[in-house]
Computed example of a mutant assay.
Amino acid sequence: MMKAGYVPVLVGKGGRGGAATTTRFLVRVGLLNNPCMEVLLELAADEMGYRQEGVLSIPCDAEFFRRVVTAIPSANKANLICTPNC
């Protein structure tokens, strides 16, 4: 069940076929318009295009992604949830 106000994001270099190298996060929707997140979303668009289907994928290291999100001043622990890969 999806938590209200969050969007799932697959983070990692593995792409859609490499579930072993991706980490699934739930990110508070409001963080997606932060400039730091916008850079990561542009990286995803550059590498995978704007027509991703299914779960949004961001091709960067999961720990780097976690550091970016937690460095956003308005962010707190409730804005990022790491979930088991499905």
Rank of each mutant, 00 (worst) to 15 (best):
A71R: 13
V9C: 02
L26S: 08
V9D: 00
I58F: 01
A19E: 12
P84H: 06
P8L: 06
N76L: 06
R24L: 12
L80R: 01
A75N: 08
I72L: 08
K13G: 14
E63N: 13
M2W: 12
R66G: 03
L32E: 01
E42P: 07
T70E: 14
I72E: 04
A45I: 11
E38H: 11
G12L: 00
G49D: 11
K77P: 04
S74Y: 06
S74P: 02
N34T: 06
G30N: 09
G15D: 01
G5T: 05
V55C: 13
A75S: 14
N76E: 09
A71F: 11
I72V: 12
T23Y: 02
S57L: 11
G5K: 05
M37T: 02
I58C: 04
P35C: 07
P59A: 05
T22D: 03
Y50C: 14
L56K: 07
Y50A: 15
A75P: 03
I58A: 02
E47N: 11
G15K: 01
G54R: 05
G49N: 11
N85K: 07
R67F: 13
G5E: 03
Q52D: 06
G18V: 02
P8F: 03
A4M: 14
V7D: 03
Y6C: 08
Q52R: 09
T70P: 02
G54S: 05
A44I: 03
R51Y: 13
E42L: 15
L10G: 00
E42K: 15
K3I: 15
R66V: 07
R24H: 04
D61P: 03
V69T: 08
Y6L: 10
K13T: 13
T21G: 11
F65N: 02
I72M: 08
G54T: 06
R66A: 09
M1D: 10
F25P: 00
C36V: 10
P59G: 03
C82N: 06
T83C: 07
E47Y: 08
G5W: 04
E47A: 15
E38N: 12
Q52C: 06
D61N: 13
I58D: 00
V68E: 06
E42F: 12
G14N: 05
P8K: 02
L80W: 01
T21N: 12
M1W: 09
E42V: 14
G30Y: 03
P73R: 09
N34A: 12
P35Y: 05
F64K: 12
A78I: 04
M2Y: 12
A20M: 09
A75Y: 06
N76V: 05
P73I: 05
I58K: 00
G12D: 00
D46S: 15
A44D: 02
S57R: 15
F65S: 02
N33K: 15
T23E: 10
L31S: 02
P8H: 05
R67G: 10
G12V: 03
A20H: 10
T21C: 09
N76K: 10
C86S: 08
Q52I: 07
V39H: 08
V7Y: 04
A71E: 13
I72G: 05
E53A: 11
A78G: 07
A75F: 04
L80P: 00
